[in-house]
């Protein structure tokens, strides 16, 4: 069965190759610590399953320390210049889009088709991970098309991947670190404390006040946890159900749907949601909070809209 292990194997090989190229790169002033960083990341993918919690914890902490104390350097990128890219683009033309669009296309098709494929009574793909496995297939097929199409040397995809990985730098690791932190916070009982505090100290005497407390609570708690999924059970158990539904008779379907969407307003403005808010600036060469700054006005407006919608729609019975 093709599942998580397949994806982690590919990721492990990718980052191992990045580490191997980095350690030989004399233009990188920190090539040894940088290579160690990417090698440890590769080990986490290739062997994380067998290492045990304490060893994995040591890897995570070492990675944080290397990055935190400036151990991650960049080399001079080994790639083509702007002029050559223009010439190549003119030569190849619109075909350049084909492999790029193949990734989402195969990912989508795969998630629809692969579910039904059985071999010897077992399904070919782990059904829970079918989207991610399809994405991996999309990448492999896109490479199989792109390399001959562009007459590229087979090593070029890895060389170019390293260029992008160095551009992204420590941000490549951040989504995973923050997701882990969310789990640790939840384990430490922070959710219950926040829920208790909110229901104890907020004025919640009217349906409107309770609706405001619920939507704003969802957004604020999402800002702290970086994830509306973590905030949803806490806030809904703390405010949504006891007050909105039980006391004021709101429709639980409306409360649930709009509550989650209010959480998403928080996701738009928190650095904790690194994969949405901090990775794109790294990919696009922007200041760290540039995307959050652009998203903030929409987030605030949508929080107001959600609160109004909750108040207007939830009490329709």
């Amino acid at each position: 069965m093709i599942g998580l292990d397949f994806i982690f194997l590919l990721l492990g090989l990718l980052f191992a190759a990045v580490a191997a190229l980095t350690v030989r790169d004399r233009t990188n002033p920190r090539r040894f610590t940088s290579a160690l960083f990417w090698a440890l990341f590769a080990v986490s993918f290739l062997a994380g399953k067998w290492l045990g919690d304490i060893a994995n914890g040591c890897i995570a902490v070492t990675l944080a320390l290397i990055a935190g104390f400036g151990g991650l350097g960049r080399g001079a990128p080994d790639t083509t210049g702007e002029a050559m890219r223009e010439t190549e683009a003119r030569k190849i033309g619109g075909w350049l889009f084909l492999p790029a669009l193949m990734i989402p296309a195969v990912a989508l098709l795969g998630s629809l088709v692969l579910k039904g494929v059985m071999i010897g009574g077992h399904s070919l793909v782990d059904l829970k991970q079918v989207t991610f496995v399809s994405l991996a297939f999309g990448v492999i097929l896109a490479l199989a098309v792109a390399v001959p199409l562009l007459r590229a040397r087979p090593v070029e995809p890895v060389v170019e991947a390293r260029r992008l990985v160095e551009t992204i730098g420590w941000a490549a690791l951040l989504p995973q670190m923050l997701a882990a932190l969310g789990v640790v916070f939840a384990g430490a009982g922070i959710g219950r404390m926040v829920g208790d505090l909110a229901s104890q100290y907020l004025p919640l005497g009217t349906p409107f006040a309770a609706a405001c407390a619920y939507t704003i609570g969802m957004a604020s708690f999402t800002i702290v946890m970086g994830n509306a999924f973590a905030a949803f059970p806490v806030m809904t158990a703390g405010i949504g159900l006891p007050l909105l539904v039980h006391k004021f008779g709101a429709d639980p379907a409306v409360v649930g749907a709009i509550g989650m969407l209010s959480g998403f307003c928080g996701t738009l403005v928190t650095p904790m949601a690194a994969n949405f808010n901090l990775v794109p600036p790294a990919l696009l060469g922007l200041p760290r909070y540039a995307v959050i700054r652009v998203q903030a006005p929409t987030a605030v407006a949508m929080l107001i809209v959600n609160t109004a919608l909750l108040y207007l729609l939830a009490f329709h019975k």
Partner: peptide
């Protein structure tokens, strides 16, 4: 606890699988 959570969340990194394709296409002027 941190190590376990870090390990359990490795799938978040699957987005980086696209980098070899995107990088290669950028090299040729995407």
């Amino acid at each position: 606890a941190f190590g376990k959570a870090f390990n359990d969340n490795r799938l978040v990194a699957s987005v980086w699988l696209v980098l070899p394709v995107i990088g290669l296409l950028e090299r040729y002027g995407l």
